[in-house]
């Protein structure tokens, strides 16, 4: 565990908590893409199946369980409890265009052709593009509440911090994972336009 990795995980956790609190406090999920949230639930489910097969650390297991619980909790709030506030008219990104290529790519490019490894690879690929329905929704409506912007900033920062962690691990531990690195860079690049707007608007006002 290095400082970049820890900050990345904190940022990830913060993003998920911001989103849950926003929905809970305002009793509304307006402006949030249910499709992105479903993709994230698929990502965590596919990746964290190793909870049953391998133990790494208490930190690792607890964080995985928290991410899973928060993700399914968000889906429950969006699609059941505060369903009436879900803005589905603006949430129209075709997620099959993300899922199918990720399935195909994970079958072709993976570390090992085994079910768990392919699911892990699929989750890495899908995570890199899972935010697209949300970014599409923001660009379609032309606005995002500031709390939604904070959520996106924290969620985008998480993978950017992981990139620094991978650079650190490459030098400190001679350890790297090409699949995670390439997907992580793609993921971070997708947020660049948003980061730019967030920072300039945050500094100069609207």
């Amino acid at each position: 565990m290095n400082v970049f990795r820890l900050l990345g995980d904190i940022s990830h956790l913060l993003a998920i908590i911001i989103l849950l609190l926003k929905i809970w406090k305002t009793r509304s999920c307006a402006g949030i893409s249910g499709r992105s949230q479903v993709l994230f639930a698929v990502v965590y489910t596919a990746r964290y199946l190793d909870l049953f097969t391998s133990y790494i650390s208490a930190y690792n297991s607890i964080m995985k369980l928290v991410f899973l619980a928060a993700s399914y909790g968000t889906i429950y709030l969006m699609f059941i409890k505060f369903k009436a506030s879900y803005d589905h008219n603006h949430d129209t990104f075709r997620i099959e265009f993300l899922i199918l290529p990720c399935v195909l790519l994970s079958l072709l490019i993976n570390h090992e052709f085994s079910p768990l490894e392919i699911l892990w690879t699929f989750s890495i690929y899908l995570e890199s593009v899972a935010i697209l329905p949300q970014l599409f929704m923001v660009s379609k409506t032309g606005e995002a509440e500031s709390i939604t912007s904070h959520y996106l900033f924290a969620l985008g920062s998480y993978r950017a911090l992981y990139i620094l962690n991978w650079i650190y691990r490459y030098y400190a531990e001679s350890h790297y994972d090409v699949i995670a690195i390439v997907a992580g860079i793609v993921q971070t690049v997708l947020y660049c336009d948003f980061f730019y707007l967030y920072i300039t608007k945050g500094i100069y006002g609207q």
């Binding site: 990795r5 995985k64 991410f67 490894e117 892990w120 962690n165 350890h175 790297y176």
Partner: peptide
């Protein structure tokens, strides 16, 4: 250099 997946990450 190890190419193993970084499975200790989240």
């Amino acid at each position: 250099v190890s190419l193993k997946p970084l499975k200790d990450e989240l």
